[in-house]
């Protein structure tokens, strides 16, 4: 049931993304994969090495986690990158912080639903993690745009 709800949420975000997107597919593909890799390594080290968050241990929650990690987080971050490009310089930093707040709230909701369980984790760590991921995405996007026509 949770999986179905989050898959539906992804479809809704995808429609919104399709309407506002200005990024070419040759940027979306590597950026999506980059987000999956960076967040995958980060989450796995938090779950397994640090043990700060308990990972989902039931089928529905486990699949929902993968929907969140592989579909909803990347498209959310791509939306942030899209809007970031449209803003003037002073607003860009504000938008990055707002984007971090969106992801922190999203993560808190996911925790409240019971998909993940905080052990030694708190909202401050979330802020640091999501801010770092967003900044890395923006840097990677910048590099991709420079390399778009490079053979």
């Amino acid at each position: 049931m949770l999986t179905f709800s989050f898959a539906l949420l992804f479809c809704l975000i995808l429609i919104g993304f399709y309407r506002i997107n200005r990024l070419p597919v040759t940027i979306i593909i590597p950026l999506w994969l980059f987000i999956m890799l960076i967040s995958g390594l980060t989450f796995n080290s938090i779950f397994t090495n640090l043990g700060y968050i308990d990972k989902p241990m039931t089928a529905d929650r486990y699949v929902t986690y993968h929907v969140l990690h592989k579909l909803i987080s990347p498209i959310g971050l791509l939306l942030i990158v899209n809007i970031y490009h449209r803003l003037r310089v002073p607003l860009k930093w504000g938008w990055t912080i707002l984007g971090t707040a969106f992801f922190m709230i999203g993560e808190k909701i996911v925790e409240q639903i019971g998909i993940i369980k905080y052990v030694d984790w708190n909202i401050g760590y979330s802020a640091l993690m999501w801010f770092s991921i967003i900044v890395l995405c923006l840097i990677f996007d910048h590099l991709l745009e420079r390399g778009d026509h490079h053979l």
Partner: peptide, 8 residues
Amino acid sequence: FPLNMRIS
């Protein structure tokens, strides 16, 4: 491959 495709 073009650079971004190689990265992908």
